[in-house]
Write a protein that binds this DNA or RNA. Structure first.
Lengths: 364, 364
DNA sequence: TTGAAAGCGTTACCAT
DNA sequence: ATGGTAACGCTTTCAA
């Protein structure tokens, strides 16, 4: 993947901005560059008097050292790379917020890449963080490289990076990296079990992308709950969505058009849930009067508005924060053993799981 | 604002990663560094034969030049800074997606800062992009610096930046910068007018932060529509929100508890709308049966689900794209005259504006 | 067409 | 306690 510099790049014109440099400051303060550097970095000895003098000049000229030069000299940047697959998915937007806060607290700079769930952009992003020499990377792979048989390719790239990597949300199997994940299987199990306990016997799932391990895990949790309770998994009750709204909308429509449809559904993520609900509401069904329902992840606005839709809750911002914690720990202590954090999800039952008409039904 | 490096920073340890350098490649290919550089950048003369030879070595070693060294040498980075106030607001998440796409297409790298709407983080972010020597900046100020009497402070910082800046969504008055904004006044006017035309005479507004010019503009558009139609603006029908859900929820509750409440409301943004709707639904009102309603901005999930809530639509991703276009144009041609783009919004009337009971009412 | 060498703005080592 | 100087890895003259 040797990137060609040409394509679509903007022209590089020498920019004649002569910025104030450490050299200028040194001259103005009547000291050597080394001394200024020491003042700047609080490293080594500097007499109180000299320090004051230098700091004064720095202040007067609002001098800020060049990160470029600084990093080149230290052979280490102060940037953290973040690669996520969907910038506009509320889940990742929150993750980003969490990460960004910690990055900020540590005087680091965040380099952001959005891959739109495509392998091509994913690889380009990896390339970008490499050439930028990020200090560490938080990474949600666009695809399941392990399942796609491309694990070694990614391993090579990440190896070349030579900096700590924390995998987030979507595992990169077999690569001994720190990671922060959700309890996908258990969460799906709990949700499904809640539907069963509410009295449902014919339960469907709006599954997420089964090419992604989190999609498979949630389906497994669902199936496990059914069989643990002596219920059969009917293939035609599995909507093979892709974690997006439009696919699950379309496929749910098809399923609902048939007969003997499930009396309740579990949706594998927020977007799937929206697509599913759209189809359900269009059909004129009310929840839970006509259909029991639980989704993986809170449906932000709907829940805020008071719609009593049950969901499995997780601390999303916290996942971002946790990932940064892991990353910083590894940066400060590269020998630290690899750690995997599984964030627990908590079932929040608000009524939509019920199999009986409720006082307050939800519809469009 | 000379930042102290110390606080909370992570330790800087020399990292002993010896990366493949241009020097290595030159040696392996049996040519000089300059030649490798020429091959890399497609600049200057290189014989076909030499080029092949060098490219082969580059490929075999998956060599990627260090952005740090490259930038330092060229005195210009390939990074674009983006400073936004709320990473997890769907509006800014979409903007980010738009920007990120263009950044990608041009082989640039995005440096991301989230300010949480605080001046402190805003200034820090400005400082960050300065020290990173970004090539250009897309900037949504956290506060209204002009109104806060701090315009000159920001002008100074931006001047020091010496690179093109595109102001996004929230104007920075009096600073002759490129900008991409919404037609806040006109959009609010159109929405309010629609409510009037639907028959409403007592109309309220869930206003946004009036310390922000976009908040004031939307209120002005609302008021203008009322007076143009011979209606008085009642101060007690103005909910002084802050563009967030919780404030508008609380204040709407208070307003609704009074008597002679408006028969319709205009909400100044998505979050205000959510807070407002929550209060309305809790009160047991249905829309539009008991209350007419239009919001500025689409209510993503609700509209997707088929709730027929009217809104003023705008192409948010497009705003991000447009901002990048402006920025790139200015980067390539610094002499280009400053431009301001006002993105038009389009009223999308789905029924919630009506003053008469509709077939399908919305409630929680 | 090529390569040596002089920067770019820092940091860090080593004298002093 | 301080300053000179050699890196850091690249780009860009300038000569050859």
């Amino acid at each position: 993947m040797t990137m060609v510099a040409g394509t679509g790049s903007i022209k590089t014109r020498r920019i004649a901005v002569s910025r104030t440099t450490i050299h200028d400051i040194a001259q103005l303060a009547g000291v050597g560059k080394a001394t200024v550097s020491r003042v700047l970095n609080r490293t080594g000895y500097v007499s109180e008097e000299t320090r004051r003098k230098v700091e004064k000049v720095i202040r007067e000229h609002t001098y800020t050292p060049s990160a470029m030069a600084r990093n080149l000299s230290r052979r280490a940047s102060d940037t953290i790379g973040v690669i996520i697959p969907e910038a506009d998915n509320p889940f990742f937007a929150e993750i980003l917020k969490g990460i960004s806060g910690v990055v900020d607290d540590h005087n680091l700079t965040l380099i952001f890449c959005n891959t739109d769930n495509t392998m091509e952009k994913d690889l380009r992003s990896l390339h970008t963080v490499y050439k930028q020499q990020v200090r560490g990377l938080i990474y949600t792979p666009a695809i399941d490289y392990a399942a796609a048989g491309k694990r070694e390719a990614v391993r090579q790239i990440l190896d070349k990076l030579r900096v700590p990597v924390v995998v987030l949300d979507r595992p990169l199997d077999g690569l001994d990296l720190d990671g922060v994940f959700s309890d996908n299987n258990a969460g799906a199990y709990a949700a499904t079990q809640a539907l069963i306990r509410a009295g449902h016997r014919r339960i469907g799932i709006v599954a997420g992308d089964l090419e992604l391990s989190i999609g498979r895990e949630r389906l497994k949790g669902f199936e496990r709950a059914l069989s643990d309770h002596g219920l059969a998994v009917e293939r035609r009750h599995v909507v093979k969505g892709r974690f997006d709204a439009s696919t699950s909308y379309r496929l749910t429509q098809q399923l609902l058009a048939g007969k003997n449809i499930p009396t309740a559904f579990f949706a594998a993520n927020n977007l799937s849930a929206y697509g599913f609900l759209k189809a359900v509401f269009e059909k004129g069904f009310k929840i839970p009067d006509d259909m029991g329902f639980i989704s993986f992840d809170r449906l932000g606005n709907l829940n805020d508005l008071g719609f009593r839709l049950s969901y499995t809750d997780r601390d999303v911002i916290g996942m971002g924060v946790e990932a940064m914690r892991l990353l910083l720990a590894k940066i400060e202590n590269p020998g630290k053993r690899t750690e995997t954090i599984v964030c627990p999800s908590k079932l929040s039952l608000l009524g939509s799981e019920r199999a009986y008409p409720a006082k307050q039904a939800v519809s469009a």
